[in-house]
Every structure is written in structure tokens, then in C-alpha cells.
Amino acid sequence: MKILVPVKRVIDYNVKPRVKADGSGVDLANVKMSMNPFDEIAVEEALRIKEAGNAEEVIAVSVGPAKAAETLRTALAMGADRAILIETDETVEPLAVAKLLAKVAAEENPGLILLGKQAIDDDSNQTGQMLAALLGWGQATFANTVTVEAGSITVARDVDGGLQTVKLNTPAIVTTDLRLNEPRYASLPNIMKAKKKPLDTKTPGDYGVDITPRLTTLKVAEPPVRSAGIKVADVDALVEKLKVLGVGA
């Protein structure tokens, strides 16, 4: 079985994003970028499945600017076997990414596509689900544990009340949640070896996919600044305040 792992280059999770002065988006100039943390979890899970002998090849794929190649190199340094960069400087929305991934899946025939449940930049949480619909494959989102058997994949999903276990026939789509695993750090020699692993560069045009955005961003603004709280004298005063605010029973 092949495993396809889409990865996205996003603003680093340690960076405090700043909105552009004209409100047109987040300022990404000279900002540190990294692999979306949920995608790192997906790469890790794919590698563990391969190391357990349940997959032969892990292919990382990314849609984005030329610099997204660095994100793919990270996946290769962690242990992915090869990578595909679908290069575009345009804004890509989840549906466009899902369409491109569906084309890649048609070429590569993976038994499993492992995605992060969402990217930490736009928090869409849509690509995996859209991809499942386009391919007509079963999907298990928010994976907490993934167990691979011959012809099927059992996933325990994080849901509000606890865990929900579902069984999927392959090929299937799984999106990762935070508790699935703790991604490895690439060992330093593997960083160098990753430079020699194959990385194919394609364009959306190669796949015949129109990636024109369907959404228009009207305005991006900083979240409102929280106003200062107040101190209450004692528990009675606190309860009184909560009642006034309608908080609690």
C-alpha cells in the first residue's frame, strides 16, 4: 500500500500573526514558515504504518509556492520516500486543493490518504472531507488512533463525548487530530539525505485543475482586544456578578 500525505506550508505556530495595514490579509513577508503541525502528525503516522510493515511507500505532496519545497524536504527528512510539489503562487482554497489531490490520487493509487484535520492558518477543516467526496472514498476525521489491517483501517475518532471507532475499507481518507502521535524530529543526517530524495514539481495546469478562488475576502482584522477585568471582594460578590451576567446555573 502507498500512503499519500498532503502537507501545507503555513506561518509557524510560534509566530504571532500580524494583519496587513490595508486589512487584505495576514502579513507573511519575512515571517517564519513551517509545516502545518497537524500535517506533521500525518507524516509521522504514515511513517509508523510503513515501519510496522503495513505500507511500502510514503509520498508527501504539497500545493503552494516554490518555497513549499522546503516543507516537503522536512517530510522527506522525517522519512517520506518521495515528494510532489504542485507549484502555484495563487491563493488556493480547500476545494482546489482537494481537486488537485484527487488527480494525484488517480495517478498514484494510494491505499490511504492521511491529512491534517486542518491547517493552522485558515483553520478551514475541509480539504480531507472534500477529497473523500470527490473520490467517493470512506473517511475518518479527527483520528486519535489508526490501526491498519489487510483491506481495512480502524480509526478511533476524537468526538465531543469521547472516542468513536469506525472501520473503513481501503482506499480511505483519514485526517489527524492532535493526540494521534508525537511527530519525530528529523535526525541531522536524514536532513542531508532528504536533499537526494526525488521531488517532482508540477503545476495545477498539469492536472487540468482550475484553482481560481471562489471566495472573496472582504476584510481581515485583528481580534478585538480584551478589556481589563475587575476584582471582586469575595465569593458572594463573585456569585452576584455571575448571576447578573447570566453565567452558570
Binding site: 519575512n30 522546503e70 524536504r73 524530529y185 528529523a186 535526525s187 541531522l188 536532513i191 542531508m192
Partner: peptide
């Protein structure tokens, strides 16, 4: 850690190493 990005002596391979360490 962005000083390396402005130095001629450091490239993305140094950055990758930094991330791992």
C-alpha cells in the same frame, strides 16, 4: 532566530537543522 535569514552563510539546510535540534 531570523538573523540567519539575513546572513550569506546560512541557507535552508541550516534552518532545517535548527528546527530538528
Amino acid at each position: 532566530d531570523d538573523w540567519r535569514a539575513r546572513s550569506p552563510f546560512y541557507d535552508e539546510s541550516h534552518e532545517a537543522l535548527a528546527q530538528s535540534v
